[in-house]
Design a protein around this nucleic acid. Structure first.
Lengths: 197, 197
DNA sequence: GTCTATAGGCAGATAGAC
DNA sequence: GTCTATCTGCCTATAGAC
């Protein structure tokens, strides 16, 4: 039986490889800091070929955020399945960010948040959506932690969720120029510990 | 008596105006998100004229960070002179960041931290220097607060200083796409309160 | 200080052959 | 799917007149 009705594009291997390269470039240099030529050179193809897979840079950018968000959501589900208790979940969440730093990368959506003003509309919407979903997940974890008496959260859990995301994204942002993952981890530990004391 | 021996360039009015426009553009769109033409259009001059004031984009960028850092240092001195006690100083420090958000701007050096990988060497050095000076100032405030018994800071004050900067820069980064200053202020209050409890 | 004119390169993108 | 060839536009930058 042939698959013909899928609304989301079939994930061809080539397409995925292109996204892999583009993702790394955006995380390192930003959406305005790389070009189709950079990807083409690395894959030993031409920019015309890239336009076959993604009609324009905006479409490529949107696909990047969608895939990144989907993967992030998968990781959050994995944390829900594996980690027990709010403290463990928050530690696992912070660890997601620490792992982003591999190869000096920034969080894709943190990078795009900086460039937000210059992004095509479709990408702007996808970026805010990423943060809102993170907020939702965190707020739920915090609320459950409070219900269980595990956390002493005063006031709005949503506001606290925003603070956690801000702190972790900022930790990545500031640590990266100094090039040491240990620096981020020390900061992240303090931030999470202080916020959800 | 004529001034001829100053090593730092005389601040001509034109030069300052150019820096004003460039500064806003970088804070809004990033260093890779604006061009000489953008500045020239706004000032109704040509890009050739800009090259008279700044030989290249790297020199302009360096001048931007230098001026921004000098102003920031001035503000820190003003806080030292006006605010009494560590809590008041930290609140004033956080307020510096809140004021940056005017017109949806990002902190200049926070923006450049995102683009760090793509920046000319002179700019990279200037950016890290900005954060180090902020760290120094904050670490001193935290240390004095602890000595006075005003703050209960466990462990390294330098590490905590880094956490504060990360949290505030991250707050700006994430709040900006949502366009509400109140959002940042709520997050910043929580972050500072939690960190220096 | 500002201009005109122009260079040389790179950007994102398209048409059409294979 | 990938190519060659090409386009248009923008980018940083420079020479030289005023």
């Amino acid at each position: 039986m042939q698959e013909t009705t899928s609304t989301t594009r079939e994930p061809s291997p080539r397409r995925e490889t292109i996204l892999d390269v583009a993702e790394r470039l955006v995380q390192l240099r930003g959406f305005n800091g790389f070009s189709y030529a950079d990807i083409a050179d690395e894959l030993h193809i031409t920019t015309a070929s890239l336009h076959y897979h993604f009609p324009g840079k905006a479409a490529l950018g949107e696909a990047l955020i969608d895939r990144y968000s989907r993967r992030f959501a998968d990781e959050l589900r994995a944390i829900d399945a594996d980690a027990e208790g709010a403290h463990a979940k928050l530690a696992a969440y912070a660890d997601l960010y620490a792992r982003v730093l591999t190869d000096r990368r920034m969080c894709l959506c943190g990078m795009l948040a900086a460039e937000y003003e210059t992004l095509p509309d479709v990408m702007q919407r996808a970026v805010t959506s990423f943060f809102e979903h993170n907020e939702d997940w965190l707020a739920r974890v915090l609320l459950e932690g409070r219900k269980q008496g595990e956390l002493h959260v005063a006031g709005s859990t949503r506001e606290l969720a925003r603070a956690v995301i801000s702190a972790l994204e900022g930790g990545l942002l500031i640590s990266r120029p100094f090039g040491e993952r240990a620096r981020f981890e020390a900061v992240a530990r303090r931030l999470v510990a202080a916020l959800v004391a």
